[in-house]
Structure formats: structure tokens, C-alpha cells
Nucleic acid binder design. Sequence first.
DNA 1: CTGAAAGCGCTTACAG
DNA 2: CTGAAAGCGCTTACAG
Lengths: 334, 334
Amino acid sequence: MRSGIKQVAEQAGVSIASVSHVINNTRYVSDEVKRKVYEAMEELDYRPNSAARSLRSQKSNTIGLIVPVLPSDTSNFFFMMVAQGIQYTLKQHGYHLLLSNNTTEQIEDEKEQIKLFNSKLIDGLFIASIAEDVGYLNDIVGSNYPVVFIDRNPTGYIGDCVLADGIGGAYEAVKTLILKGHHRIGLLTGELGITTSNERYDGYKNALADHDIPFDSSIVRMAESNLESGYESAKALLGEQKITALFIANNVLTMGAMKYIQERRIQIPAELAIIGFDDYDWTQITCPPLSVIRQPSYEIGVKAAEVMLERIEKPSTISEEYRLPTSLILRDSC
Amino acid sequence: MRSGIKQVAEQAGVSIASVSHVINNTRYVSDEVKRKVYEAMEELDYRPNSAARSLRSQKSNTIGLIVPVLPSDTSNFFFMMVAQGIQYTLKQHGYHLLLSNNTTEQIEDEKEQIKLFNSKLIDGLFIASIAEDVGYLNDIVGSNYPVVFIDRNPTGYIGDCVLADGIGGAYEAVKTLILKGHHRIGLLTGELGITTSNERYDGYKNALADHDIPFDSSIVRMAESNLESGYESAKALLGEQKITALFIANNVLTMGAMKYIQERRIQIPAELAIIGFDDYDWTQITCPPLSVIRQPSYEIGVKAAEVMLERIEKPSTISEEYRLPTSLILRDSC
DNA sequence: CTGAAAGCGCTTACAG
DNA sequence: CTGAAAGCGCTTACAG
């Protein structure tokens, strides 16, 4: 049997209370007692039982994370990088990360995950919700613990949000294209409704407006975020309209569009200049290597964890939005 | 305050014991009592406190996962797919997954993670260990819970292992190349020592041997698994030796090699036939789309979880190795 | 400066 | 067929 705090106290010849207090540094303990406790802990290879701890203190030191990642989805790597950043930061502070992926992209599934987490007494929740309105969190979470939204900022519930600056990123991409002399700049983006798509759309429009280029809805296409749909949309757009540059506002669509463009042997950037989204390794090995807007995914995770830790320390009824800057990685496609 | 089992018992007018037994289905309870308990639980929106449960039953319903994923590593998507598969399967059985990434690829870090987990009273551990010999698990884990190794089968500790059939995968790739008429088939693989690299190396050699092609060590290269090193190794190999086909035994090296090959405008498959490793989406959009050996990553996760669940049910001192078949995805690079 | 003891919310022998 | 009660291993007022 593993030894508990009682055995440690016995071995050290002090009270259980003292042992607890040296472990948690929660009241003064003389150096002499401390020494004996440390010795005893060492000798017995004592590890606090966190179930008991949680039960008593109503804190679990565990935080849940829900991300939408489909089983076959090789592309939503973004969230996995965020998860890494979160986990790394949490670890430094003695917290654990409970992972849950929403494999169906249904809101019901999302709720189900949260309920599962609830039985675990989590101290906080990170969520990349697929819903625009997360009012349902009022029932399920009900301010029992802080929630930090990542990547998307839904309405209906108060929680901090950390995400990339989609407007700025899109703006920079389009502006770059304009400064290279392009006027007919197409946009291929995810379906509107989801905040990330909306923002990138706005950035696109802003950049055009600031440079006196009229907005032409016939050269912007919304597509479901998957490879096939990126392929088809690129095909349709390039077939129907004459454009000299294309900004593709997410990584899956970028991949799909590139597939079509390479099949057709469209010369990049001579016939078509391209800026894609997300700096995945593979963007270096297309022909030519792709210029992209990089999202600081790992950093988003780190920031989200920091914000969470702070909210756990001192809860609050106001919430903030943290936007991390994107950056343009210039390669040979524009 | 959230209501506990006591409130439910009161509301239902039965004993705490009965409530517990209907929740856990652990002894006969009359339909009448059951009904009242369910009603009360519903009314009070009762959720069992899992900390209390764990403390009492010495079971946490939580399993840890340790994977080596570097912060900047956009390529180790493999483990994330495995994690998805594990999490999905565990969820069906009411288990939670505690995620921990070993960001340093140091064994010390690995031990540290496990110790952290130990305080949490985990019921099992999945690990893709970076060590060849995990004898240190004897001290840290000491058969307190089952461990299931994924992707790599280290020595020094008893635990089941589920991984892809690297020998078979490599064999099939090389055999395919041979049947297409190639005799000078290069190999670019990760550094030996790690079991996955060893196996793919063996598969390569077996295929050659079975087809009476002499093994030529001058056309096989081991490289550190990163993009740059894949690039450099491809450059060196192709510069020094004349080969007509190349099997690249992991995805990062594949990416690195492809970068070099595309820069040099080496015609695939005319000048060089290629089969890569891992079926990532990006392998569809290289020029030309790449033929690859697919590893069933998600399925490995599912299988690992199933094995784990079984070991938790009935512990055992013997261990098995489960090899999931790879498959050849034929595209245009060979 | 330190200890004795209550109690967190469950599960599970024990008793009837 | 069901209930009363011990106890899992901690934290934390309370007391001195």
C-alpha cells in the first residue's frame, strides 16, 4: 500500500496538520519540523493523494479542453498546437489537462463533453466552441468555474477569449498583394457565421477599401472547410472569373485550392499570386513554396493557459479578449 | 451548493446506500426505489462527485497519455491522431484522458510527467516512450496500473504494445518499387535505435533480399527526423549516388526530401520514383501527389484504448504486441 | 508555534 | 431486499 500523510506524520514524529502545512506552505512551520517532514516524505516516497485533496479542498487542479477535431481530419492541427501550448503552461503550475475532442461537430456532443467534465470537478474549461451562441453554458457551467474561449469568440456567456488577429492577418495578406500591383484579388474563405471566417472576410474588405479597390463579390467564395470543397471552389472561381491574385483564408481550403492549381499547372506567381493561411510545414514544399499568414497557435495556448490561471486565482465577472498578432511569412507564391 | 448523494437520498426517501447502488448498479434495488432515485437525481440535477468516488474506490477513471511532441513540431501529427482515437474510445467507457506532452524529448522529462500523473491516481498509462529501455518504470509505476506502449515497443517493463506494422509497410513499399522495375532503390530513414526506424529498415532489407537485389549500404541514409535533415540527406544521397527510386521511411524526412527534390526540379517519377511514409493530406498536393505507406494512427489509438480497458478489467503479468497493418496508397510518384 | 478532530462525498462490508 | 456506519486521505477551522 502506498503511504499516506498519516504514515509521514508518524515517521516524522509530528502531527498530520504539520505535514499538510509543510506540503502546502500554508502556515508557519519551524525549520526543524520541516526538515523532519521532508525526510519522512523522501523515505516513504510519499505522494499526496489528489483525490482526497480535491474532495476536501474542492479544487481539482485539472482543467478541461474541448476542441473540435474530426477523426479523419489531418488538418486541424491548429488545435493540437494550441493544446500543446496549454498543457505546457499548465504543467508549470501543477495543473493537469483533460482532453476531449468533439468528434461530431454537433453542439449536443459539446454539451455532453462538458457534463462529463462536470462530474470531474474541473477548475476551468477551455473550449473552441462550434456554436456562435453558447448561452447553454449558463445552465451547464453556471459560473462554477472560469471558461476561456479559444480561437472563436462566441456570445451568450461571459468568458475570456484568446485568439489570433484574423482581421489584421487578412488585411496584411491582401495589402501585400495590392502593393505587388494586384487589383483583381480573389478571396476563398470558410463559411461565414463562424467568427474566424467573418473576421478574415472583414480584413479582406478593409484592405481593399483602404486602397480604393472596389469590392467585387463575384470573386469571393465561401466554402465548407475541407479539401474537396477547397478544390471545387478554386476550380469554380478560377474558371468563371479573371483574377491575378488569390487570398485563401484557411489552411484546409489552401490545401484544396493548391491541389487544383497544381493539377492545372497554373503558374504561381506569374499567372496567379497566392497567399494562404497557417504556416504548416507542408507550405514549404509546394511548388513554389507558399507565402502564408501564420497564426501563433502554440502561443495562443500559452496565453489561454495564463489567462485561465489568473481567473482561477481571482474570479471576475468581466471578460477580456486577447488577440495575438499574426505574421506574414513571405515565400515564393506572391 | 451542488447537491450530493445525501440530498438525493433525502429527496427520494431512501438510504444513501440505495442511491449509490442504483447509480452503480451494484446490487439489487427494487423498481420502486430505483424510480424514486432517478426522479430525485433528475430533479436535483445530481452529478456524482468523482473526487469522492476516486478516494473511496481507489479508481480514478482517468488514464494518462504521454507523447513526445515538440512545440514547433508541425509534423508529429501522428501522435495527435492516436490521442484522438484513444480519447474517443475511452469516452465511450466513461474514462477521461489526461494529456501530457514531453516537450523536451528527454527521459528525465518523461519520468517527471509520470510522477505528476502518479499523484493523480491514474488507472493506466499510455506512453510513446523516447527510451529504448524503460526499466525505470519499475520504480515509478511498479505495476500499480497497466501501461500500454504505443508506436514503439521498448524493453525493460511489461506492458502491452500497439503499433503499426513497420516491417510490413516498408516491405510493401520496396516490393512495389521493385515490381515497377527498380533495382537501385535508396532508403532514407530515421536514426536507428528507435524501434520504428529499425523495423522499417528491416522491411527494406527483407524486400530486397526476397527479390535477389543485393543490399548496398551506400544508398541508405539515416537522418535525424526533421525537415532540414531530410533535405540535406536527400541532397547528399542524390548527389553522391545514382538511384532510380527512393523509399523515405517517415513523414518529416519525406517532407524534407521533397523540398530538395522540388527545388532541383527532379522529375517524379520519371527520374526518381518515390514512396513516402504517412498519409497526411499534404501528400496529395505535392507535384506529383505522393504514393505513401499509411499508418492507421487513429485506429492505433482505438486499439490501444481497448487493450487498456481490458487490462484494467483483468490485470495480467503477460503482455501482448498488437500490430496494425499499414496500407499502400498509390498515387503518382511511383 | 503545533495538534486533535471534523468533514469533504462517496463505496462497501456488515447486519438484519 | 434495504439501512446505518465506517472510512478512503486529505485540509482547515478551532483551540491552546
